[in-house]
Amino acid sequence: MKRKMGPIEDVKKQYVRMAIESGNAAHIARKVGVSTSTLGGWMKIYREEVDSEMREEGVSPLTESSTSDDLQKKYEKAMKLLGEKELEVAMLRDMFKKKLSD
């Protein structure tokens, strides 16, 4: 069965990317409000695709040899992405509430 792609899958992939880039899936799971096993499942599904996108963009995950400047840049980018996704979720919730009240 072919998986339906849409905004929810985009959000999941973004969370997977944040986990890969940060090197700390448990922290990202707590930040976005999902269980570590849920995020781990999404990582199994989307890891190859996200890794490929990251290679195309020239983005690499953090390693032990990453500098503090690398860490700061990745942290700022992750927080920006998280903020964007939180805004999207809030907008979707608002639209859903309006739809229910109609």
Rank of each mutant, 00 (worst) to 15 (best):
A29M: 08
R93H: 03
M54Q: 14
Q72F: 04
I28A: 09
M54P: 10
G6C: 01
Q14A: 14
E21I: 13
K97I: 06
M5A: 08
Q14P: 00
I8L: 14
R30H: 13
L87F: 03
L81V: 04
E48N: 14
D69I: 12
V59G: 03
A90E: 08
Y15N: 11
A78V: 05
K98R: 12
G23R: 01
D51E: 15
I8D: 07
L81K: 01
L92F: 03
Q14L: 12
M79P: 01
M79I: 05
R17E: 12
E57K: 15
T38R: 15
L62R: 15
K74N: 11
F96R: 13
V11A: 13
I20E: 01
P61K: 01
A25I: 05
E21G: 10
I28R: 13
I45G: 03
E9Q: 15
K85T: 13
K73H: 10
D10K: 11
S22K: 04
Y15H: 12
G58H: 08
V59R: 15
V11Y: 14
K31G: 04
R3G: 00
P7T: 07
L87D: 03
D10V: 06
N24H: 14
Y15P: 02
G23D: 03
M43P: 05
V16M: 03
V50R: 14
G40K: 15
E64S: 08
Y46S: 11
A26I: 12
T38A: 12
Y46C: 10
I28V: 15
E9A: 13
L100M: 05
K98H: 02
H27V: 11
E84C: 04
G58N: 09
M43W: 08
D69T: 10
L39N: 03
E9R: 14
E21S: 12
G23N: 00
T67K: 08
M43F: 07
